[in-house]
Amino acid sequence: MLRRFLIHQRAIAKPGLRHVRPFTTCGTLQEKPLPPRLKLVETELEESFLKGSGPGGQKINKTSSAVQLKHVPTGIVVKSQETRSRQQNRKLARLILAEKLDHMEKGNESRTSIKTERARVKKASASKKTRRKYKKLAEEDGKDDASQESADEVESELNDARSSPTAFETQNEPSKP
């Protein structure tokens, strides 16, 4: 039984299987898949490797692995010199350019915008939850000194909260007498 449940959970976790019916009654939240990455057309790109002039080959030891990429139809130029590998820089430059073009084309509907928006929403809801939690804690703290039972509860909850000390401190400070 447990094994069946685990297998089911794993199937749900896969992003491709959207139509799997959850075994449990509390529905799992299916995230909408992100729009696909923009595909660049290689013929529309002008690639150049930036390096100094002068002799090359054995005579000098160039360390420049920078790659500059120009998208001819729009005239956008991006540059990547992040890594020592020119091949990796070429890939990075293409990634950056694709993101820029995607953003230009679709604005807020672009892949990167959706991604950052989702991250923002997630963070906001998480902080909302913590805020609610500590508000509740503070209320309980204020109203009862008599009930030992609930104080114990609070204590255990406080211990849990210590794993995120910053949130705990900032949220709890004002309520202290």
Binding site: P55, G57, Q58, K59, I60, N61
Partner: peptide, 15 residues
């Protein structure tokens, strides 16, 4: 393939 002259003149110092 560097000539002894080019080694003295046009070859980078670190090389």
């Amino acid at each position: 393939y560097i000539s002894s002259q080019a080694f003295r003149t046009t070859t980078a110092r670190s090389v």
